[in-house]
Design a protein around this nucleic acid. Structure first.
Length: 825
RNA sequence: GCCGAAGUGGCGGAAUGGUAGACGCGCCGGUCUCAAAAACCGGUGGGGGCAACCCCGUGUCGGUUCGAAUCCGACCUUCGGCACCA
């Protein structure tokens, strides 16, 4: 921790200026966005905050630079919509209810009221008339309506899936509530339970989600992560024969991307959750298998999939026959096989898969090489061989390359009806059911006569009842509310039960961009005319932690709604930019337990919103995040203070000085270079270097003021343009100075300055002269110097000559405008 | 573990194949002051040299190139995500 920062003696009262302009802008409604504005639209959205209580400096870090970018677009001439809202459903509200006895609604709405006030202090261009709060029925009734559209389209279905279960609290846990395999509240070892839940068929869109053609500019790393998350692999589904057991199911389906290795199968592994495990377990293995399954229910997926942890399993005592060679191989259950991927069963080929290899070694299963390594001497493998080679021990496919073998075997499998070529995805259907109170009720009814019946659209919303019990029963708190649960069937009017699960909050964030357009629209989730006008979102900003889930869900939603004819576009966000994470002064993630949390209110009151905005942008590249610094912000505050002084100076005092035409020209050059730099940097979210350029500009202006070498008109131009360039970053500060200079309100309704390439051009440059790649001299030469002249001058340099003396120059490299490199023979 | 990033002065960072360290913090020196703070001006990667200058230097090791912080390979460390935190 640093010592107390030295105070800054400001020439102005930042708190008064912040207040004055926030009130004035509010009164004038300059942030109200007119849907009919004829200028081109620009929809710039930042991920809405969860109303956790206080606005954290992390929220400022996400929102202030985003606002700066939106303001820059506005000054470029766009009609900019930059809305804000609250992601108001979710687990923390329910935890507050349990631990402090505050109703989730009260807790959430109080937090929102507080954060709304704090958000205003940022001075952003939010149009508050468009604010959304998704725990209110005006919002969530449309979640319900949308769910029903997914249901009608066959994209919502009911199925079984495991949830984390605390046997002691008798409740479902979120992964976050599990610490080292134990319930965070009571410490009991967790297990998993299968429940009937609602799924959305995102897998049906897997291929389309892999197509990024419709996106304009997303970070490459996010596209890679989405691609890997979806995890498309082409392979073959092949059935092993189990008809010897006389079960209803005669075949065991496995999926493999390496069908060329099918002659190397020496065992089969089923996921512990596989439906056939029970039927295929022999009498004497029942106890061992049951124990193993119970153990697997405690393990997380990360543990199960780790290539470090030992691969374990238990033989079921039954066998399956490989259709290609008629071999009978043992069936195991093992937790490294997941039910959610492929068919939940793998053919074990230890010679050519590392996990299978580890498994076979542990259980003494044979390892049969069927793809011969090119330089193979016939000896045993010490690890699985994964590369190319020729087929061996493989019947009639002997001698083919593995690629040829793949095709030939797949052809024969399809011809004989043993299986088919297919595509598998790592991505799984999206489970939206949550056994919780604080979420959108899923609008379905269960009737003994009619089965699953959707709630009719014209009776929405299904309101979340205000009275709920939060005692742990293992069911959603809604299940204990008889008034809510008991209803009549919309079809037969007989007695029926409501669905008591609520929706995942990612449901809300999948379409909230549409609701901002008119949060009060009551004929549908959004106004279709406004959607045509504003959608898709031009620029989205937010944390990279949403790379795969939220951003994939939202893309899926929009594609599904497009197919239903609800939307006429199929990507929600054309451009994406991810900011990094702001860290505490100790370079650690901010957390209450570390005590390194920065409260923005205090520093905003002291130094002003603009000093905080500028400092957050100046710390470093926005996408990389960085540490807060109580001392560092002093530098930014001091700089704004110097800018105040600079802009407030009376240019007529320069009349007394000695005008230097070269200084005037240089000052114009710096002005135009700065405009160009700011324009390009703000365009690309490079706020830190834009501010550094403005700092250099202010340093330059100070120097020319000190020697009075420029005329008042040049000075005036520089000062005005300076304010315009700084306006997106420091909106209150620049508005105040703009007014004090008598310029027309509002600076934020002015155009961003334009630069002149001619005036920005340098006429002299520093030419670097290298000898064998080492810098030996720097020459000041005209910018348009040609190669011959540059070389000639380089050779006349005495410093260079001391290195080249007596040696022949074998080669000369010339980079125009930069350097001459003399390579000696 | 798997997927994705990032490592540069005392600190935040700049430079994305061509002058390493822009800009800022901190520190040192100066101006002003009775003094201090603030403000303003100057200096500031490490080592050597009276100096001109020279050598070293971008996580580690190796490679490509006239030239590498930047490109390639291996490794180390830190961070984000891994499907119920949002």
């Amino acid at each position: 921790m640093t010592s107390n920062p030295r105070p800054v003696e400001l020439r102005y009262d930042p708190a008064a200026i912040d207040r004055k302009w926030q009130e004035r802008w509010e009164k004038d409604g300059i942030h109200r966005v007119d849907n009919e504005d004829p200028r081109p639209k620009w929809y710039e959205m930042t991920m809405y905050p969860y109303p956790s209580g206080d606005l954290h400096i992390g929220h400022w870090y996400a929102m202030a630079p985003a606002d700066c970018h939106a303001r820059f677009r506005r000054m470029q001439g766009y009609n900019v919509l930059h809305p804000i809202g609250f992601d108001a459903f979710g687990l923390p509200a329910e935890n507050a209810a349990i631990s402090r006895g505050i109703h989730p609604h009260t807790w959430t709405m109080d937090n929102i009221a507080n954060m709304r006030r704090q958000l205003r202090s940022i001075g952003a261009v939010y149009d508050w008339e468009r604010e959304i709060v998704c725990c209110l029925p005006e919002f969530y009734r449309w979640n319900q309506w949308l769910f029903l559209q997914f249901y009608k389209a066959g994209l919502a279905y009911r199925g079984r899936a495991p949830v984390v279960w605390c046997p002691s609290c008798q409740t479902v846990l979120a992964n976050e509530q599990v610490l080292n395999g134990a319930c965070e509240r009571c410490g009991a070892t967790i297990t998993r339970r299968d429940l009937e839940q609602w799924f959305l068929r995102i897998t049906e869109f897997a291929d389309r989600l892999l197509d990024f053609q419709g996106l304009e500019d997303w970070p490459e790393k996010i596209l890679t992560m989405q691609t890997n998350w979806i995890g498309r692999s082409e392979g073959v589904e092949i059935s092993f024969d189990i008809k010897e057991y006389g079960l209803e199911t005669k075949e065991l389906n496995t999926f493999t991307t390496r069908i060329d290795t099918v002659f190397g199968v020496t065992f089969i592994v089923l996921a512990p959750e596989h439906p056939l495990v029970e039927q295929l377990t022999a009498g004497d293995q029942r106890a061992a298998v049951a124990d193993y399954i119970e153990q697997a229910r405690r393990a997380s997926e990360i543990e199960r999939l780790s290539t470090e942890t030992e691969k374990t399993g238990v033989p079921l005592g039954s066998y399956a026959v490989n259709p290609l060679n008629g071999e009978r191989v043992p069936i195991y259950t093992g937790d490294y096989v997941l039910m959610g991927y492929g068919s939940g069963a793998v053919m074990g080929v230890p010679a050519h898969d590392s996990r299978d290899f580890a498994f076979a070694k542990k259980y003494g299963l044979p390892v049969r090489i069927v793809i011969a390594p090119i330089t193979w001497d016939g000896s045993d493998l010490t690890e699985a061989y994964l590369d190319d080679g020729f087929m061996t021990n493989s019947g009639k496919y002997e001698g083919m390359t593995d690629e040829e073998g793949k095709q030939a075997i797949a052809d024969d499998i399809e011809k004989n009806g043993w299986g088919r070529r297919t595509v598998s995805y790592r991505v799984r259907d999206w489970i939206i059911s949550r056994q919780r109170y604080w979420g959108t009720p899923i609008p379905m009814v269960y009737c003994a006569e009619c089965g699953i019946v959707p709630v009719p659209e014209d009776t929405l919303p299904v309101l979340l009842p205000p009275d709920a019990e939060f005692k742990p029963t293992g069911e959603s708190p809604l299940a204990a509310n008889a008034d809510f649960v008991n209803t009549t069937c919309p079809q037969c009017n007989g007695p029926a039960r409501r669905e008591t699960d609520t929706m995942d909050t990612f449901f809300d964030s999948s379409w909230y961009m549409l609701r901002y357009l008119d949060p009060n629209y009551d004929e549908g989730p959004f106004d279709p005319d406004l959607a045509r006008r504003w959608m898709p979102v031009d620029q989205y900003t937010g944390g990279a932690e949403h790379a795969v889930m939220h951003l994939l869900y939202s893309r899926f939603f929009v594609k599904a709604l497009h197919d239903m004819g609800v939307l006429d576009f199929d990507e929600p966000f054309l451009r994406l930019y991810n900011q990094g994470v702001i860290l505490g002064e100790d370079h650690e993630k901010m957390s209450k337990s570390r005590g390194n949390v920065v409260n923005p209110d205090e520093v905003v009151g002291q130094l002003g919103a603009d000093a905080v905005r500028c400092f957050l942008m100046f710390i470093g590249p926005w996408d990389q995040g960085g540490p807060w610094s109580d001392v560092g912000i002093i530098g930014t505050a001091r700089w704004l203070n110097r800018v105040w002084d600079l802009v407030e100076r009376d240019p007529s005092r320069l009349d007394a000085g000695t005008l230097d035409p070269e200084s005037v020209r240089q000052t114009q050059r710096v002005l135009h270079q700065t405009i160009r730099k700011c324009y390009n940097d703000l365009d690309q979210f490079k706020f830190n270097t834009a501010i550094a350029a403005l700092m250099e500009f202010s340093n330059h202006l100070n120097r020319v003021w000190a020697d009075s070498s420029v005329d008042p008109e040049t000075w005036r131009q520089c000062a005005e343009n300076f304010l315009l360039l700084l306006a997106p970053m420091a909106p209150h500060f620049t508005e105040e100075l703009w007014e004090r200079k008598g310029l027309p309100y509002s600076i934020h309704q002015q155009s961003f300055p334009a630069w002149d390439e001619g005036l920005a051009a340098n006429d002299m440059i520093t030419l670097v002269v290298q000898v064998n790649g080492k810098v030996r001299d720097r020459l000041n030469v005209p910018a348009d110097i040609d190669e011959a002249a540059a070389q000639a001058q380089a050779l006349t340099s005495p410093r260079v000559q001391s290195y080249t003396q007596g040696k022949a120059v074998a080669k000369t490299i010339y980079v125009p405008g930069r350097l001459v490199n003399l390579v000696l023979g």
